[in-house]
Each structure stands twice: as C-alpha cells, then as structure tokens.
Design a protein around this nucleic acid. Structure first.
Length: 563
RNA sequence: UGGGAUGUAGCCAAGUCGGUAAGGCAACGGACUUUGACUCCGUCAUUCGUAGGUUCGAGUCCUGCCAUCCCAGCCA
C-alpha cells in the first residue's frame, strides 16, 4: 500500500495548507458507506482517497456505517463492505463506527436547536412541504408552523420521539431561509418519524435524523478533520456548515468534494447495476462483466491494479469519463511482471507431425516468466498430434501473415520448427487437420543452421491436453458514455449481447491441472486469465481478465488480408 | 431575473508569486523479440471554452459571453 497514492491533488494541497496553519493537526478522514448495496469501482476511488489520505498524513480513517435510514439498510451488506475494503488492502484497525451510535447526541443537539430558535416542528405533510418549498427559480414560502415557540416545539418534538404521532404527520425542520437560492437551505427536514425497527438500534427510536443533519455531527464527534464526498454534495456544504455552527463546532470538520468516477463501456450507477442483476442479464453481483468489486475480483483484477488505476486517474472536480483502456493497462502491466506463462489453445485445430514417432513423447523445458527469472521453468509434453489455434493457420494468407500456411515454416514455442505440407478440409471448407513435418535439429526452438522463422505459435499436445471451459468477457455495454445511450433506454438494454462468449472445448497444457480458483496466468499470445471458482473436480473454468495487446488484429482489420 | 460547480490534446490530468504548456492512457512511426506480447527509441497542444482588457510578458489577473454537469426525497 505504501507506494499507492503518492500523487497529490487539490485536497492534499489544502490539507498541506491546513497543516501550516495548525501545526500538529491530526488529519482524520472517514469513509461512510450506507449498508444498502454492493460496492463498485466508483467506491474504490472514495475508499482509496479517504484511507490513503489518512495514511499519507499519519492519521486515521474511520469506517462508519451510515445507517440513518432503517428502511434502506441491511445487516448483510455490512459484512460485504468490510470484506471488500479489507480485500483492497486498507485497515480500519477493527474500529467500525455506526451513525446510529450518535442518535442520542443528535437528539440532544436537536433540542438545543429548538431552544435557540433554530429548529421547529412542522405539521405540513409531504405534498404540502413540496408546495411550500418553491421551485428552482421561485422562492419557497414559510411554513405556517414556523413561528411556534421553543416551548411548543420542544413538547411536540418530545412527542415525536415518544411515538405519539403517525409516520409522515410531523417533521423537525431547521429554521434557515425559505428564500435561499440553495434549496437545501429552505428549512430542510432534519428529523422524520419512522415507526420501523433499526438493524442496529432495534426499537429504541421512532424518529430518525436525516443525513444532512446527522453527518456533520457524526464527523464532529469523531474528530474528523476532512470529510470527503462526491460533488453531488457540494450544494449541501452550506447546510453542513450551518449545522456545525449552530451546534457549536468550529473550522473542522470541513467537507470537500471530488468528482465521482465514470469509465467508458461500463456502468457505475448503483440503480442501473441493480436493474441488470435483478433482470438476470448477468449472473449475479459477482458476475465478472460488471464493475462491482466482487465482479472485478472474480474477473481476476488484483487490488493493486485497481489502486494503481485510481491513482492514475487522479482527483479533481471536473466531470469525466475515464477510458476503460487505462484500467486494462493497469492489470496487464502488473500481470506481465507476475503471471506465469502457459499454453492454452482456445479454438483448437489438429496438427499432425508426419515425421514424428507415433508412440513417442518428449518432455520439453519451458520458461515460466521471461520477466521474472525467479519464476523458474516447467515441463511441457510434446507428441505427434498437437492442437494449435485455428487463427494461426491460413490456406491462402495475406502478405504480412507470418504464421502457418502451406509450405511455410514456423516455430512451435519451446519445441521445434515445423513446415506445413498438407491439410484437410470438410465440406464447408473449414480446416479439419493440418499436416506438417518437423526439423529434429531445431529442438528447443532454434535451428543449428541459424535460419530464422517469423512466426512462433503456442500449442498443446493432443493426448496430454486438458479440456477446459473458457469464458471470454467483453465490454459490459457497447456504448462508450451515457451520452451515447439510446433515448429512453433502460439499464437492461445497455448490456452488450456479446459481453460473454463461452468456449467449451479449449485445450490446456497439463501443468494447469493444479490451478486453483483465483490463480492468474498469461495464456501465451491470448491474454491474462483467472481460474474461476466454478472449477471443481475435473471441470476446469477460466475467465479472461483482459486480452493481450494485439497489433496483428489491427493490421488485419485494416484490410491487409486483401493485399 | 434561482443557486452551485466545471471548462488545458482522442481520454484522464499537472500547471506555485503572471516568465513562455508536466506526466499517464490511447494512437502513430521505428528498433528488439522463441509471445505480432513485453521492453526501448521517436512523433503527438504556437495553444489552454470564447471575446475583449491590464502587462514588456497571461493557461495563470480583470470584464463580458458561451457550453456542460448537479440541486425542487420526510434518500444517502
């Protein structure tokens, strides 16, 4: 973690100034998720910013379950949240806070607001409240209950607390300014009546504080110095500061806002993701196509690659959509250094080495990772019948194709030079078998006479091959950004129908027999793959994390085939 | 005639007191290569939303304009 998030940003710069002004100030942040859903990549940015900022300044970050609304929060999410943060590598030192633990103080402060004429009990119902609030361009009107005396307000508020009134019949409102251009300041509701059991406080309360009122108080009580949230709360800052002022707090905590994370070709809206999952368009909250932390984890992304990504994106206030290519770069960059290379043929076609002994098997040495000598080497069996990638053979190749074709010689990685002498096709014209001869002197992949070949292919010995299911994932949505979404589309329409392609008959080299769920490899010339938890007994399943960069695909797509 | 925020390359994003546009991704050339991968080298903003102004000098200061995003939950 120490290397992560070294880069500075406008928030760190402000903290640096705060530190000059208040030497010895203990920087204290907080991460306040509402336990009402699963985390996605957007949360990683908030988690990273809050925890890494505290770490950078030698302070602490409080994990705080923001449970002020009992109808939304569920206990099961509390565990998922902790698991995800831990997986990312951050620690809250076993200090888990709950917003609900401050309900007593929130209540006391509400009494103080009432006594000082800064809050009143309002009998308007929801519809009336909306009417009185005004619109974006017209000011609101004062509630007819706005001038109640502190004594009456206190009596009524105590009555609310004691459960004397029905849900929705009364609220406690801050007494600020109905004419404010900022709608959040038009006497916002700070307490509502909800006869609902709370997952943490049980039946102790029937009134619950609103986020805007409770949050600054929680921050203040915990000694938070910097309360970082997304720009959606920028308009709420005056209210945050109003609450702190009226309850008697000073310059800290201070709320600062940063832009939320958006990525091309995927969806980071909590609501849209839920729609997609509930409609069964993906297999669940951990489907490797969706950018939930659980999904990314199952896809094969590492915590460090996610954090590296967040760091490269930076922190600013501008609305932005980051190119998915950057996320892919981060995982490739990491796995290039750490993943062992293995050979796997995804779309197999048989090759017969006609001058190779039918009963013979050779054990060839293969380097595990050219980027890491420490990774050592392994044995790969070679025999007369092999599989290669269907794409690696063409009957009538274009000029720049330097893989296998009739009469052409290529190298089999770690094995021999082979030359195609013949091939068979079926009625539909597709190749059923390729026949080659090999050069026995080229064992290991070099010819003693020094002749060169332009192509090197990966391969798997047919009789030693492992059968496997491979899941090829592609972008969740074909639309790069929300601005490209079709008019009136719902979330389920956005899912790319080709986002998952399942291959049932892939052939793997036998060393992969020992692969366990979560293990990551580079399937040479194909991409990075992660062993899926569905792998059980003799069923082997791999997920493609990301393909390798493919320059040839670009060249051939540009029409070289017609040369 | 509401309020708030933001505009620097295809995408992110640095740009301190005004001193002559960092870095990353992508893209494009080339070298290397037993992965068409990796690595390496090179190219990629006469211009900072726009129009004026101040100044020897403006992305940075001033004024006007334009564009985009957010806000009318008893959600967070």
């Amino acid at each position: 973690m120490d290397k992560q998030f070294e880069s500075s940003n406008f928030i760190h710069e402000e903290i640096d100034r705060d530190l000059v002004k208040y030497p010895g100030l203990k920087i204290h942040t907080r991460f306040p998720p509402e336990p009402s859903g699963f985390f996605h990549i957007g949360h990683v940015k908030a988690i990273s910013l809050n925890f890494a900022t505290a770490e950078k300044y030698g302070g602490l970050c409080n994990l705080r379950m923001d449970d002020t609304n009992p109808i939304l929060e569920k206990k099961e999410y509390v565990d998922a949240i902790q698991r995800d943060i831990k997986w990312l590598g951050f620690t809250w030192h076993e200090r888990v806070f709950y917003a609900s633990e401050y309900f007593d103080q929130c209540f006391e402060y509400a009494l103080k607001l009432i006594d000082e004429g800064n809050a009143f009990v309002c009998d308007l119902n929801a519809d009336e409240l909306r009417e009185y609030r005004g619109t974006l361009t017209e000011p609101g009107k004062n509630s007819p209950y706005r001038e109640r005396t502190p004594e009456e307000n206190r009596r009524l508020f105590l009555g609310m607390k004691d459960g004397l009134y029905e849900d929705g019949t009364r609220t406690l409102r801050a007494r600020i300014d109905m004419k404010s251009g900022n709608i959040n300041m038009r006497d916002p509701v700070i307490y509502r009546i909800m006869h609902k059991e709370h997952s943490h406080t049980g039946n102790k309360w029937v009134i619950y504080p609103m986020y805007d009122y409770a949050h600054p108080i929680q921050d203040a009580i915990e000694g938070i110095t910097h309360s970082l949230c997304d720009v959606g709360f920028e308009d709420h800052r005056p209210l945050y500061e109003w609450v702190l002022e009226k309850t008697g707090y000073g310059e800290f905590p201070k709320q600062r806002e940063f832009a939320r994370l958006n990525i091309t070709h995927t969806i980071t809206s909590k609501r849209k993701l839920r729609d997609i999952v509930e409609a069964g368009k993906v297999a669940g909250w951990d489907d490797p196509r969706i950018p939930t932390i659980a999904g990314l984890r199952r896809r094969g992304y590492t915590p460090s690659s996610l954090l590296a990504f967040i760091d490269k994106v930076g922190v600013a206030k501008t609305y932005s959509v980051v190119d998915m290519a950057l996320l892919e770069f981060c995982i490739r960059d990491e796995l290039n250094k750490s993943a062992c290379r293995v050979m796997a043929v995804l779309d197999p076609v048989k090759v017969v080495i006609t001058n190779y002994d039918a009963g013979m098997t050779e054990e060839l040495l293969a380097e595990n990772n050219p980027e890491d000598p420490e990774a050592g080497s392994r044995i790969v069996p070679f025999s007369r019948e092999l599989y290669i990638e269907r794409d690696d053979f063409m009957i009538d190749p274009p000029r720049k194709f330097f893989r296998l074709s009739p009469g052409n010689e290529v190298r089999l990685k770690n094995a021999y030079f082979i030359t195609c002498t013949d091939f068979n096709i079926d009625d539909s014209g597709s190749v059923t078998e390729i026949r080659c001869t090999y050069d026995p002197l080229s064992k290991g992949g070099n010819s003693p006479d020094g002749r060169k070949v332009k192509g090197t292919l990966h391969w798997v010995s047919a009789k030693h091959a492992l059968d496997a299911e491979i899941r090829l994932y592609d972008r969740l949505t074909q639309y790069a950004t929300p601005s490209e979404y079709p008019e009136n589309s719902n979330a389920t329409d956005l899912v790319n129908p080709d986002s998952l392609l399942i291959i049932n008959d892939a052939k793997l080299e036998p060393s992969l027999l020992s692969a366990k769920a979560g293990d990551r490899f580079q399937f040479m010339r194909n991409g990075y793959f992660c062993c899926d938890p569905d792998t059980k007994g003799d069923k082997i399943v791999f997920n493609r994390i990301v393909p390798l960069r493919d320059t040839w695909a670009k060249i051939s797509d540009n029409g070289v085939k017609n040369d």
